[in-house]
Design a protein around this nucleic acid. Structure first.
Lengths: 151, 151
DNA sequence: AGATTTCTCTTCCTTAAAGAAGAGATTATG
DNA sequence: CATAATCTCTTCTTTAAGGAAGAGAAATCT
């Protein structure tokens, strides 16, 4: 499982892994009646924290009309909350509410399975994995920014 | 970076990582004018290999009409190819075409950045990571199946 | 062989999400 | 202090994707 030959299809393994993650995310969202854009916004909020409808819409590639309605949907479904901005009364802050309950629930089986996998590693191995998670997350976040900058 | 305290927010790190991966996948697809369903189908094909429109549509949660049109879109965009099934002339096999060029291109910056990160690990550490990728992919794939089974 | 089922595709209709334009409120600017 | 700019939201229209129903070809069953 770690011979030089097997390292050759590292790319394939990695693509397969990414596909599985994406597939699962999508399937979970669909099971919660969450559209693609709504899921995108939730991921954005999870990753970057609370932001105004303006920037949220811009980063999701939406004009203001759809942005308002998307936030309406997310708020009604309990994923998000609108708070007036303290320093500018025109603005609104959209913040994710803890963990989206419904989504969390749907993802539980996968999380437990992954947890099982992770518990099979030694502390040193876990250090490697979480080091990777941290750095890869930042790399992907950065890549999204760049994509958004040069369309 | 590996103290017991930091292990406490393992969940947060992992969620953040998943969000970043999803976000990047979505953003890349959008940059290629790929809708959510089309991306889902591509991931499915990447993960499970060629399949008929029937099963593809079923696994994507579509009826036959939208399925045909989705495959039309993917085929026209060069992501997929239709081949007549050799053993049943009613059937069609939908197979992904190598790596989707356009999508591949858009994802290049992230891939290179992740490659850079991976090259920073020792062979033993890479073994751990790829072992994880392999097992997690299977876990997610299984979870999607289960989601699909019990809606 | 004839009837039935299976599979894909086509056509028409419905629905959900996105764009455009502008109103109302608030802040910044000259 | 008045004008302009900013921010969110509303309304109306457009577009893209999905559902329903059925046709045509081919396999399966009796």
């Amino acid at each position: 499982m770690s011979t030089p030959e097997s390292r050759a299809d590292a790319g394939a393994i990695y693509r397969r892994y990414l596909s599985a993650v994406m597939l699962h995310g999508h399937a979970s969202a669909k099971a919660c009646d969450l559209g693609a854009t709504d899921l995108y916004a939730l991921n954005l909020l999870e990753l970057e924290g609370p932001m105004t409808p303006g920037v949220l819409g811009a980063r999701a590639g939406l004009t203001t009309g759809p942005t308002t309605r998307m936030i309406d949907r997310l708020e009604e479904a309990g994923y998000v909350r609108r708070t007036p901005s303290p320093d500018d009364r025109r603005k609104v802050i959209v913040e994710p509410i803890g963990r989206p309950v419904r989504l969390d629930e749907v993802m539980t089986p996968a999380r437990e399975e992954v947890g099982k996998i992770l518990r099979g590693y030694s502390p040193e191995q876990l250090d490697v994995l979480f080091d990777y998670f941290t750095r890869a997350a930042e790399a992907y976040r950065q890549a999204v920014d760049d994509l958004h900058a040069t369309p």
